[in-house]
Design a protein around this nucleic acid. Structure first.
Lengths: 342, 342
DNA sequence: CTGAAAGCGCTAACAG
DNA sequence: CTGTTAGCGCTTTCAG
């Protein structure tokens, strides 16, 4: 296995020159650069990560703490992980995967052993015990999810308040008399993940603002039975046109199925707006109007935040909370109230 | 951030003694050990991973290549990743996550940069281009999945041949006249993942051996429509008792739903055996008799194989192919042929 | 624009 | 049972 010393000898330069050719941290003449690069190619040289980390005090690794473990909700986790892994590679960094069930000590280990240059913490709960520890680290930490008190840590997430606003405003504007929000599963509510409340609050506030009746059915379990119950609880037999807002990708299909089974025709006698990914919305049967909730967008933003933190010497402008704005896409489940004859 | 030198000074010993206390590679008197451990606790010392990797020539990291990327089937991937991450941590190792879309060069990078001590390659296809590269590495590689030619690399997987044997034997023994295998989705067949063929071949061979009629419906897409078509293609209107073997966790529920919708009663006029995880089988509606297919078992075996390889100086006994034996669990979907009156 | 040399923090001979 | 010492392969001053 060739070292930079071998490359240097072969190219007839000093070891430091090889280093500077790689890092670009000082000007190199074209001729020397050519010789070094040729020597590198010829030997198949690759820099030793450990040596680099030791001498350069940076690991080129991002620690990713994923919510595995007994209590974890791992539905839809993969797109996050994939996007982060891919995004990080584009900066020639790697991802060290750590499971959340290791607890807050995972964070101190990552920092203490110098295993990474930055940490991404996923699935943040409103009162997450890891925040305190994370805030005390010298290595930058980016949160995916917004806790009650971020302690100065940068957070990224979907703008759930805006998502609720979009959905409710849309329903009111298209002549619905009533908005029923089918909320999150009991497990998510119990864990007090930040977005549950932010979504609910915004839905309520918007409904009030635009003057439409508003009800909430919660918890809603993402199972055939749970969906059936939720549909019953929505009381669609009442007079007037109802708009259903279904929170959470996993609940959308079950609710649609339950509606059809109960004799309803989404898009005709009831409107359904899913709060889910565009892919899930398009694949649903029937294709459902949705407010997008794209893990990939959030992850990309997280990666960008990580490298902004890594690139700036000082923690200059603390970014605080950065939210991804969702968009509303109409599909087959939008109904319109009978309009005055045109 | 304290170093082992700080610990040594505080404990009044040499730096190497601190190292040996950590590694246990040579005897330490109780008294010295006590002083060192106290000094470590007092300073909050944690060994620098980079320095360790450089001096000790081992990284304490396992590289995990996961099938992300455009062409990837990531369904059910999480349990694998989680189990590997957790298992590896039990040996005080970490996991470096690499996406397969980086191609074979990911492997040379992991090796060349000394990023890990071993590599786990997931979702191996029958003719996987990475095998050749993997076989040429000096760092041990464990395959999850069995390729046509493993090139001497250790493989772990579920014993799909045994799974098919179990299912078909069971059906024949309980008086079924006909076995219909609902096979994998077109995408899996096209990618030529090893298990598709192994399962199919074994099902056929077993059916012949026990003398029961055998048909295959393939591909089967794991969607409502795909399941409906598959059920039609199974021609359950024919005389005699039919046993359906549904391959793949994601297809089981859709097929059950399609059966019920078509007026069948699983467990009464048709038997269904899912080839899926026990969890999925128990959660299905109705709970389905299944042949287990446990990602966690496979992953645990993979981790064990990794550390067996890491612990032995030489690659002594090449383990070749290690398969996890599935088990059959009866649930509500097993029907029995009318037996002679007891 | 380039070289020489001093470490980064740990491990593992080698010596006792 | 313990200490001394020589690196591991890079990065980065300091000199020129």
């Amino acid at each position: 296995m060739p070292t930079s010393k071998d490359v240097a000898r072969l190219a007839g330069v000093s070891q430091s020159t090889v280093s500077y050719v790689m890092s670009g941290k000082r000007p190199i003449s074209a001729e020397v650069r050519r010789r070094v690069e040729e020597a590198m190619a010829q030997t198949g040289f690759q820099p030793n990560a450990g040596a680099r980390a030791l001498a350069g005090r940076r690991t080129s690794v991002v620690g990713l703490v994923v919510p595995f473990g007994p209590s974890a909700d791992t539905t839809g986790l993969l797109p996050f992980v994939e996007t982060i892994a891919t995004g990080v590679r584009e900066h020639d960094y790697d991802v060290l995967l750590v499971t959340a069930d290791e607890g807050p000590s995972a964070l101190t280990r990552l920092e203490g052993r110098r295993l990474c240059d930055a940490i991404v913490l996923m699935e943040i709960e409103a009162h997450d015990p890891r925040i305190e520890v994370a805030a005390s680290l010298r290595v930058p930490v980016v949160l995916i999810g917004v806790p009650q008190d971020p302690r100065g840590l940068p957070c990224v997430d979907v703008d759930f308040a805006e998502a609720a606003r979009l959905a409710v405003t849309e329903l009111a504007a298209s002549g619905h008399d009533r908005v029923v929000v089918l909320g999150h599963p009991a497990e998510a509510v119990a864990r007090d993940v930040g977005y549950v409340r932010r979504f609910a609050d915004s839905a309520l506030a918007t409904a009030r603002a635009v003057g439409v009746a508003h009800e909430v059915v919660e918890p809603v379990e993402a199972t055939p039975l749970g969906a059936e119950r939720a549909v019953e609880a929505a009381r669609l037999d009442r007079p007037g046109l109802t708009g259903l807002v279904v929170a959470g990708t996993s609940a959308v299909q079950p609710v649609l199925t339950a509606l059809v089974r109960a004799g309803h025709v989404p898009g005709r006698d009831v409107t359904v707006i899913g709060v889910c990914t565009d892919a899930a919305a398009a694949a649903a049967e029937p294709a459902v109007t949705n407010v997008s909730l794209e893990p990939r967008d959030v992850s990309r933003l997280a990666v960008r935040t990580v490298f902004r933190l890594l690139d700036t010497e000082v923690a200059d402008a603390p970014p605080d909370v950065a939210l991804v704005t969702p968009t509303l896409t109409h599909r087959s489940t939008t109904a319109r109230a009978a309009a005055p004859a045109a």
